[in-house]
Design a protein around this nucleic acid. Structure first.
Lengths: 179, 179
DNA sequence: TTGCAATAGTTTCGACTCGCTACTATTTTT
DNA sequence: AAAAATAGTAGCGAGTCGAAACTATTGCAA
């Protein structure tokens, strides 16, 4: 029984215990995860495929989850102008409000001493990168940490998509992010 | 969007991504969690109630999960001598073998630099303790870290149950553990 | 350009999870 | 001895999930 196993079990147990939280009463864990991701993803990364890949599920399953979030009024479908197959799911004001809620797991993490929290974040990021790499997926990192991230004067700029970005977008999750 | 939220999302995402692992082909995530717990719990902590409390689910749900593990040959029912309502689920040799398997999440944790791993473990333990405390539950800690843990010469001894323990039991999970 | 392959999303089906409630059996309390 | 508490199980219904089939759109290549 290795130390690594203990840590894995801590991670899955934390996730499992916090999964019983219903978030305002009408959201299940899958929906919470999806909503939470959407609240942090940039405008190029909010399709069913992207959320599915991020959370390690299938497009079909995620399609159901997102439709149910639409029904509850937390997200809205926005069809793409450039690719008519593609849909972006954007948060409604209610969705934004709900996503800003602190969950029990957030509070629990808050009880970790300040100094250790940065290390915790880094260590979990390392583990995630390794896990994702083995499965051949993308890590979906923060835009500003990307090798394509540049600046034109004061405004951020994406060298991959050749696009000027809004300042807040540099801090969002992007599916194309590469270290 | 606080740093705590980022960390929570890392935790749930790691758990979710690793949940798709089937562990030899015929175990689902709930069963993996239960088996994994049983492999680390001492003989006083292996009943359906205990596993349910540890994993934050109900007795009814856990009863099903454990029955299905029995059907697959990984655990066996052992009825208690002292309390005829009570059942302990012990691992079969196949169960032991399967529980010893390293999962993708274990490997991912292994990629975290050695120095940070101890801090990761401590930080996650802190978070878990805080989460459990808020829900009024038990943390199910390691026997040897318990306030009732004593030694009679060389052998460990439990002051709460007034029992001599086998050496390996001191390192197992106990539902009565109190810091 | 036309046809074929790839991609995005949805739908449907079956297996399964999960919480809830009701129930039996046993133990503990009063 | 009766009542209350506890351990475990069974069955129901809502919902998750993955797989496969399907539609629509886009990309590619002959």
């Amino acid at each position: 029984m290795s130390k690594n196993t203990h840590i894995s079990q801590l991670i899955t147990r934390l996730a499992r215990l916090s999964a019983s939280e219903t978030w305002g009463g009408d959201l299940n864990p899958a929906q919470v995860s999806a909503l939470s991701y959407l609240s942090r993803a940039n405008r190029f990364s909010r399709s069913p495929s992207h959320v599915a890949e991020y959370l390690g599920t299938t497009r079909g399953t995620m399609s159901q989850t997102l439709k149910s979030l639409v029904g509850k009024g937390y997200v809205a479908e926005v069809s793409s102008e450039t690719d008519r197959r593609s849909i972006s799911y954007d948060l409604t004001p209610e969705g934004v409000r709900l996503a800003a809620r602190r969950g029990v797991l957030d509070d629990a993490v808050g009880s970790v001493p300040e100094r250790e929290r940065a290390i915790l974040h880094g260590a979990l990021s390392d583990a995630l990168r390794s896990l994702v790499a083995k499965n051949g997926g993308r890590s979906f990192g923060i835009c500003s940490t990307c090798r394509h991230h540049q600046r034109k004067g004061r405004t951020p700029y994406c060298g991959l998509l050749d696009l000027v970005l809004k300042p807040e977008e540099a801090l969002q999750i992007c599916r194309e992010q590469t270290s």
